[in-house]
């Protein structure tokens, strides 16, 4: 039995562990892969106080070391369920294990939204990518497409325009959700072609991706774009599905909770990108971690005071 089990070892979860340990509560962090989370993909963090430049890997490794140094336990197991048992919470793991806790913090983050096309999964790393800064170098002087209309898509297209021979930007509407300055910058690039009011309907591939078919949403006409790389930037999906029976999720799947990180379930708190919030950044994730842990500690201390 731990006082607090944190699900997810990204910046939010590890910060929660730090705060909980400083309040002298026992903490177990469950991480499915490796600590660090999404920030691992960021080569250079420039907007987190106090260092002007730090890599996502170094950031993750240092926060993990800090949490361990304060006595947090970390186990590499995937949490797949959560249930109430008396006054305790029981976290169920993929291999049939269980961890009992007085309070739980959901810091599961999010994963890339996929297009949902046949062969998409097989072609990851063979032409399909979800991270332009990670994989862009493989497409130097080649033809690529970016699909999406938010800032990530626009920034990916700008990044790739510096490397690739040509970049198609495929978006299902004719306006963008992303910032107008990014759109203007892209329009100024001679090697960027906007393919608007269009959706990707098929990936053409043998061993590797060779082309995509895009369909015009207005008249249904189909155009084939020959290319080597498709960068998918159609948003992210919060990883909350396993806990949907315990906490309230909004229409997009984010856990409904205010600034205090309380979910509707007593003793279950949420921290980081998987919570409903207007800004998902490293600094807001760590802020959530601090808040969720502080509230969880209050909750646990309340139980202990009552002798349960």
């Amino acid at each position: 039995m731990h006082d607090i089990v944190v699900i997810g070892g990204g910046p939010a979860g590890l910060t929660a562990a730090i705060y909980a340990r400083r309040a002298a509560r026992s903490v177990l962090v469950l991480e499915a892969k490796t600590c660090g989370g999404q920030i691992l993909n960021t080569p250079d963090i420039e907007n987190y106080p106090v260092e002007a430049h730090v890599s996502g890997f170094d950031f993750g490794a240092r926060v993990e070391a800090q949490a361990r140094g304060l006595g947090a336990e970390i186990a590499f197991e995937k949490a797949v369920g959560l249930r109430r048992d008396g006054a305790d919470w029981v976290v169920e793991t993929a291999k049939g294990g269980e961890h009992r806790a007085r309070a739980v913090i959901l810091a599961t983050g999010s994963e890339n939204r996929k297009l949902g096309l046949p062969d998409e999964e097989r072609l990851v790393g063979r032409g399909v990518s979800y991270c332009a800064t990670c994989d862009g170098n493989f497409y130097r002087n080649k033809v690529v497409a970016v699909v999406g209309g938010g800032n990530t898509a626009l920034e990916d297209a700008l990044y790739l325009a510096d490397l690739a021979e040509k970049v198609y930007l495929v978006h299902r509407r004719d306006g963008f959700r992303g910032e107008e300055t990014n759109v203007a910058r892209l329009k100024a690039r001679p090697n960027v072609e906007f393919v608007l009011n269009a959706t990707v309907r098929r990936l053409v591939a043998e061993k590797r991706l060779q082309a995509i078919e895009v369909e015009d949403v207005r008249d249904g006409s189909v155009r084939t774009l020959e290319l080597k790389g498709l960068f998918v930037a159609v948003g992210r999906i919060p990883e909350n599905q396993n806990f949907a029976s315990v906490v309230e999720l909004d229409a997009s799947g984010y856990v409904v909770a205010g600034e205090d990180c309380h979910t509707r379930a007593p003793g279950v708190f949420v921290a980081g990108d998987n919570r409903v919030k207007p800004l998902r950044q490293l600094v807001t994730a760590t802020a959530d971690g601090a808040m969720a842990a502080t509230e969880a500690v209050k909750y646990v201390n309340g139980l202990l005071d009552r002798g349960t």
Partner: peptide
């Protein structure tokens, strides 16, 4: 070897590719 995304782990057996995983993966 058609590696266009890393991390990429490729298992070779008898001189040929047998299995592959792309991206950060779990210990399992």
């Amino acid at each position: 070897w058609d590696v266009a995304s890393i991390p990429c782990l490729v298992l070779f057996k008898g001189g040929a590719e047998a299995k592959r995983s792309v991206g950060l993966v779990s210990r399992d």
